[in-house]
């Protein structure tokens, strides 16, 4: 396995399948009366959360404890804006405490990458969400959930709806699902799609209703409150009408299609309560699967040395390789 899990963009298909298969095995074991595995006894996993996220932190905490690891929850106050405790100083502290793995959530894109590559720490780094960049374990648990319901990824169509621009979940899902062979469609108003999205390995549509009938899974992204005042769309009502999933739209989905949401939901905004609580919704299952997938990730990163998900190569990058524009004389 690579030393770190920083993004799904650099996961190979074999890596991804290994994580999902391992998670499946772990889920089977978890169904037994004794849920705890001795695998990571004596190892220390630090949950380093610069942003509050009780659900993700708890999920990682349960995952690590079920593998018998020692868990330290380190809530660092101070975001990039407030200039509180710096990422570097925190990393040095954790290094001194002998952390084997650091699970990091941070508001700055690239924070996990920085932690892994800046030379501040020798721990394994798991990205638990960095700014608007990636949230790889969320995408892995989404893929895990889809595979269980849809039986695989080839020829399966997944529609991701909403604020792609600011969504780390969307980025991680697009890369991972494309790697696994699914066809992804992003459905969003043009203002909530990033510049350059046409080069992503997916289709893009401004029209949710056009995408719905062909969807095997539909994933509704959360619309954060600050976007509502940011001029990205006129009103909450108009957004809901054009891009929200209500019972009427859900009825147009194929019979076996599932409804997903990474949480936390804004009921009545991107998803109606009736849809969230319907039998097509796998939202609660996603939460349970999150523990299995995170156990698999920690297990593969920390147990055994050079085994598993690939090599370290390709991680380090020559920073000056790209200094000459292509085609230009030196």
């Amino acid at each position: 396995m690579k030393r770190h899990l920083l993004s799904t963009a650099d996961l190979s298909r074999d890596d991804a399948v290994l994580i999902l298969d391992t998670a499946e095995e772990i889920a089977r074991l978890a169904a037994r009366p004794i849920k705890k595995l001795p695998t990571l006894r004596g190892r220390t996993v630090v949950n380093l959360f610069f942003e509050d996220s009780t659900r993700t932190r708890t999920s990682f905490e349960v995952a690590a404890k079920r593998l018998s690891a020692d868990v330290i929850n380190f809530s660092a106050k101070g975001s990039s804006v407030s200039k509180g405790e710096s990422l570097k100083d925190t990393a040095l502290t954790l290094e001194a405490m002998g952390a084997d793995a650091v699970v990091v959530r941070h508001s700055a894109s690239g924070a996990a990458y920085r932690l892994a590559t800046a030379g501040w720490s020798s721990s394994h780094v798991v990205n638990a969400g960095d700014g608007t960049h990636e949230h790889p374990t969320q995408a892995l648990l989404d893929a895990f959930t889809m595979r269980r319901h849809l039986g695989g990824f080839e020829e399966r169509r997944v529609t991701v709806v909403g604020d792609v621009l600011h969504s780390r979940v969307a980025r991680s899902n697009v890369h991972l699902l494309a790697t696994l062979g699914a066809r992804v469609t992003l459905a969003a108003p043009p203002t909530l799609l990033p510049v350059g999205v046409e080069s992503w390995p997916c289709d893009v549509s401004y029209d949710l209703d056009a995408a719905i009938p062909g969807s095997d899974a539909i994933m509704m992204l959360r619309v954060q409150r600050e976007r509502m005042n940011g001029g990205f769309f006129p009103t909450q009502r108009e957004y809901s009408r054009r891009y929200g999933l209500d019972a009427q739209r859900m009825a147009k989905l194929p019979d076996k299609a599932i409804v997903m949401h990474p949480g936390p939901m804004v009921r009545g905004m991107e998803i109606s309560a009736a849809v969230a609580d319907s039998d097509r919704s796998v939202i609660v299952e996603q939460v349970a699967n999150g523990v299995s997938v995170r156990m698999a990730v920690l297990y593969l990163l920390l147990s055994g040395s050079e085994s598993a998900i690939g090599s370290d190569e390709g991680q380090a990058q020559n920073q000056h390789q790209n200094t000459e524009p292509k085609g230009a004389a030196a």
Partner: peptide
Amino acid sequence: AQMNEGELSGLLGLAGWP
């Protein structure tokens, strides 16, 4: 804004400077 707005800023999740 954090970096040039383009395909790369979208992938890196860094706010674009168009």
